[in-house]
Design a binder for these strands. Structure first.
Length: 727
DNA sequence: GATACTTCAATGCG
DNA sequence: CCGCATTGAAGTAT
């Protein structure tokens, strides 16, 4: 099938377009020279360049297009390349046979600690030294050891802020005040701009992103990356909620993702701003994303649409483009089913207006990939997959570093030349994309999940099975308990005045102001259509027994049970734990805490008697995980006396372990009917959670009057670990 | 420095 | 559930 035209790996093919092949011809052994990487001059680490400066010498070899400014150095060049992996005999160099000296990878900035990405996913430690001030802000240190801080949001001289000024001066359709022709003005009349602007500021304060120096913008760390992604998605969800109640005026597209990113970027809130080859600090192999803009604001892949990201690297006098990352998500005819191998198509060759095809050219990203091939540089690979949960939309998986092994051109269906690049994953990295493939096989039955003790703990009670797995030792399972779907009450939590419920046909919809359930939630539905939490309110009002809407109403999210495929598994050192085969996006519903509601008036008597390790206590002190809530209703911060025991009856939530750096939080949910109302506890993802990452939440601190009962040593291993927790 | 151009998005409609 | 048109924003190139 494949034409193999102009293939480096198939030089024997005769009838090919020679002129085209010429352009693809490998660059010959360029010696990397990197005295001072661009963009780093002001903040560079005081580290001498390991590279040797070799000026261009000699004539161009015959056949080499003069496009390349470099020449073949003589063979006595010293090789002080610090890169660990010896690079030689790359198939891509076959066209030049054995006379090619080993290509030397071009390093730009070294990721401060490659370990941050090479270690296990469990590690939550940051990759850069961070110093805590008195004020608690984690500022980086500059070269002379001084704190770099004092970034003022409105007036700075940073590149980002000046860009922001430029943008502000020019009217843009995408500004947040929808339909507002004077962005930044008339905030009184356009409530949205004011609300959103103050909301952003509140987020930035809460997540310590206001003190945001150039250093932190240039180089990220885990905490910074997490915070930025967190704020991005909180903003995006709130904007979604605000927009979905409005009528769609034709010609205006709803892009909360772009708006959220734009709001952050105009304030200079982004990180890993300086491009680099190799890993990006704060982003781990296996991390997942749901929007291209997320990749952009954390510096993993900066183009908002294009598939190839590259940077110009200075070699003596000239510059040379080198690829830093690619996104493979189905836009072209890539082949990546082999897991660790990816055949990536070059860019271009299609007119976006009319879809007309033509030959791809060796320019831009294609040229950068070609250079990276002959430099033997590593390229970050992000794999885009279809999001199974939401039929629309994609998931982007950071699959780590690859090396380009060879390149060639092919004819596509229209007979036009397309560049192809064969990338092979650098060994020794944590499993990422291949794990997704394994899970897919577990699901469709083509490969067994090892260590399964019980395929479905719920016995079909839930729409998704919950399996019990132990693939590390002989333990046959936790002590016996009865699976129940919901929290059980001996008596109603409270009796409301009178709540007749809604009559929404086909489920509650946004923007229906007459819906009593919408009214209870102050005008907005608390969940998106995909089951993602949109509201910041401290209490969610779901539809209850007297509502006539169907069970799949989106305001019955926690009643419907888990939508992700959960697994109870044996951990290394913390007993049994909970994790998900499916990715969970930030704000995504996971499950409720089922069990028996404990009569708190008698808790003191019974609690001392026997050990109960399956207690959920909502009366404890919990840190503000979201750190924000609408200031309109402080009154609804309910200190409700709910205690649940899941010792005898319970669901998968009873296996969720504690962590001082959790990825899950809980929120109270009220389900009301005419005469009774019941309070429940629902769990949601704090951030995007990749498959098979353990789900944990903060068990909270007991109040002083509760004593030290249940205090245990914490093994969560996070950087912020308190050292203990209360079971 | 402004402006044009390119681009493996994301959405909503028919 | 798809194909299609539409609106987009960042970064690079001019």
């Amino acid at each position: 099938m494949e034409q193999g035209l102009g293939s480096d790996s198939n030089p024997s093919l005769g009838s090919i377009d020679k002129s085209r092949v010429l352009d693809v011809r490998p660059l010959r052994c360029l010696v990397p020279v990197l005295p001072n990487p661009p963009g780093m001059s002001s903040v560079s680490t005081p580290q001498p360049s390991p590279f040797v400066c070799v000026p261009p010498t000699g004539p161009f070899p015959p056949g080499i297009h003069p496009f390349y400014p470099f020449l073949v150095p003589n063979d006595s060049q010293p090789n002080r390349n610090p890169h660990p992996s010896g690079v030689s005999n790359l198939p891509g160099n076959r066209a030049f046979g054995n006379s090619i000296p080993a290509p030397v990878p071009l390093n730009s900035f070294r990721t401060p600690t490659p370990q941050a990405n090479g270690g296990t996913r469990q590690s939550e430690r940051g990759s850069e030294p961070v110093v805590l001030d008195d004020d608690g802000y984690s500022d980086s240190l500059n070269q002379s050891g001084q704190h770099v801080s004092g970034f003022s949001v409105h007036v700075t001289d940073t590149e980002d802020a000046s860009n922001a000024r430029k943008r502000r001066g020019r009217p843009r359709k995408s500004r947040v005040g929808i339909g507002d022709n004077n962005p930044g003005k008339s905030k009184d009349e356009h409530g949205d701009s004011f609300d959103v602007e103050s909301l952003v500021n509140r987020f930035l304060t809460s997540y310590k992103l206001k003190q945001f120096g150039d250093v932190r913008r240039a180089n990220g760390d885990k905490e910074t990356v997490d915070s930025i992604l967190l704020v991005f998605d909180l903003l995006r969800r709130r904007l979604t909620q605000l927009e979905e109640v409005k009528d769609m005026s034709p010609g205006v597209s709803r892009r909360p993702d772009l708006k959220a990113a734009s709001l952050l970027m105009t304030k200079g809130v982004r990180t890993n701003n300086t491009k680099r080859i190799g890993h990006v600090p704060g982003v781990e192999v296996g991390d997942i994303f749901f929007f291209r803009m997320e990749l952009c604001i954390v510096g993993l892949h900066t183009p908002s649409m294009a598939g190839i990201d590259y940077m110009n690297v200075k070699i003596t006098v000239d510059e040379e483009p080198v690829a830093v990352s690619i996104v493979s998500s189905g836009g072209y005819d890539d082949q990546g089913d082999d897991g660790d191998v990816l055949i990536y198509s070059g860019q271009g060759g299609v007119q976006r207006r009319d879809g007309q095809m033509f030959d791809q050219k060796l320019e831009r990203g294609n040229l950068a990939l070609e250079k990276s091939l002959h430099r033997a540089n590593e390229v970050r690979v992000i794999r885009g997959l279809k999001d199974i949960a939401g039929s629309t939309g994609k998931i982007y998986v950071y699959d780590g570093l690859y090396k380009i092994q060879e390149s060639w051109t092919e004819k596509n269906n229209s007979g036009c030349n397309v560049f192809k690049y064969k990338l092979v994953r650098v060994p020794g990295q944590p499993e990422a994309f291949t794990l997704w493939k394994s899970i897919q096989q577990w699901k469709n039955g083509t490969a067994p999940r090892t260590g399964v003790i019980l395929p479905d703990l719920t016995s079909g009670a839930e729409t998704q099975p919950v399996s019990l797995v132990n693939d590390i030792d002989d333990e046959k399972g936790p002590p016996y308990f009865t699976y129940i779907r919901n929290l059980k009450y001996a008596k109603p939590f409270s009796t409301p005045k009178s709540f007749s419920g809604c009559q929404c046909i086909g489920g509650c919809q946004p923007g229906i102001s007459s819906c009593p359930c919408t009214q209870r939630n102050e005008g907005y539905l608390p969940y998106s259509s995909l089951g993602v939490l949109l509201t910041y309110k401290p209490l969610i009002y779901e539809c209850g027994a007297t509502c006539t809407c169907p069970p799949n109403c989106r305001n019955r999210m926690s009643q419907a049970g888990p939508k992700v495929r959960l697994e109870i598994f044996k951990t290394n050192d913390r007993g049994w734990g909970l994790r998900s085969w499916d990715p969970i996006r930030a704000g995504g519903f996971i499950c409720e805490y089922a069990g028996d509601a404990v009569d708190t008036s008698t808790l003191g008597d019974t609690g001392n008697g026997k050990e109960d390790n399956y207690i959920f206590d909502a009366t404890r002190y919990y840190e503000h995980l979201e750190a924000v809530h609408d200031d309109s209703d402080d009154s609804t911060k309910v200190p409700f006396p709910l205690v649940i025991s899941a010792k005898i009856n319970g669901n998968e939530a009873r296996f969720m372990n504690h962590s001082c750096s959790p990825n899950v939080f809980w929120k109270p949910v009220l389900r009301e009917s005419t005469n009774e109302s019941y309070l429940h506890v629902a769990f949601f993802a704090i951030r995007h959670i990749p498959p098979m990452q353990e789900l944990t939440f903060d068990y909270g601190m007991v109040r002083p009057e509760q004593g030290d009962r249940g205090r245990k040593k914490c093994l969560c291993g996070s950087m912020k670990c308190r050292g203990y927790f209360y079971s």
